Simulated scan of single mutants.
Amino acid sequence: MDFGKQALLIIDYTNDFVAEKGALTTGTPGQQIAPAILSLANQFLDNDNYVIFPTDLHDGVDPYHPETKLFPPHNLKGTWGRQLFGDLETWYQEHRDNDHVYYFDKNRYSAFANTNLDNYLRSRQITNLTVAGVCTDICVLHTAVDAYNLDYRLTVPRQAVASFDQAGHEWALRHFEQTLGANVTD
């Protein structure tokens, strides 16, 4: 069965969202998914598929950005907090020149909002997305909903997503499967 070309979206896996001293950290749940994310990145690249890093970017405290009222400053341009977490930063630096690795800035929860992601995927005939990263119930969720609405097939590996809200995490996993028709894998 042909599933078309595939891409792995590693969403917001940065120090601010994952490291112990991150500004908006998922803490241990986010840190525990690091091996699964690295394994997926290697599998996708080894199989001539794409590894994409939609990464939250803020320039400071923007009084007009809706997140300013909801969250502390995070993923600020040029800071340690915005770097990819742990070994994923090293992986990215080693593979960044590969034309199947794409890192881009996003300024909303969804990786599709205000970005060229849909055009990037369609121009490469990518029809299947595996979504990983943080937070399951915020940026991963909003990206998955937009992907569903754009007719992409979705896979969400349970061991490669995390949140600082366990109830929200579990709800989002059910939503991916029951409402978006995603393949939620163990």
Rank of each mutant, 00 (worst) to 15 (best):
F164C: 09
V156G: 03
T143C: 09
T136P: 08
R158N: 09
G168K: 05
S163Y: 03
R153C: 11
P157K: 04
H169Y: 09
H169I: 12
A167Q: 15
A160M: 02
A162P: 00
D146N: 15
A144C: 15
D146S: 14
T155W: 00
T143Q: 02
P157L: 07
T136D: 10
L154H: 09
L150W: 08
D146A: 15
A160Q: 03
A147S: 13
D165L: 03
V156C: 07
A167I: 14
V140T: 12
A160C: 06
L150H: 15
Y148A: 13
D165E: 12
F164M: 11
Q159F: 05
V140M: 04
G168R: 01
C139H: 09
R158P: 04
G168T: 08
A160T: 02
I138G: 05
R153L: 00
C139K: 00
H142F: 15
V145S: 03
Q166P: 05
A144V: 06
Q159M: 08
A167L: 13
C139G: 05
A160L: 02
V145W: 07
R153V: 10
Q159V: 04
D151I: 01
A162R: 00
T143D: 05
H169W: 03
V140F: 10
T136H: 07
P157G: 06
D165P: 07
Y152P: 00
Q159W: 02
T136Y: 02
T155G: 04
Y152Q: 08
S163A: 13
A144N: 04
G168Q: 06
D165Q: 09
S163K: 02
R153D: 12
N149I: 03
C139T: 06
A167R: 11
N149F: 11
A147I: 06
A147T: 08
L141R: 02
N149V: 01
V145E: 12
S163D: 06
V156K: 04
D137T: 03
V145Q: 13
P157F: 01
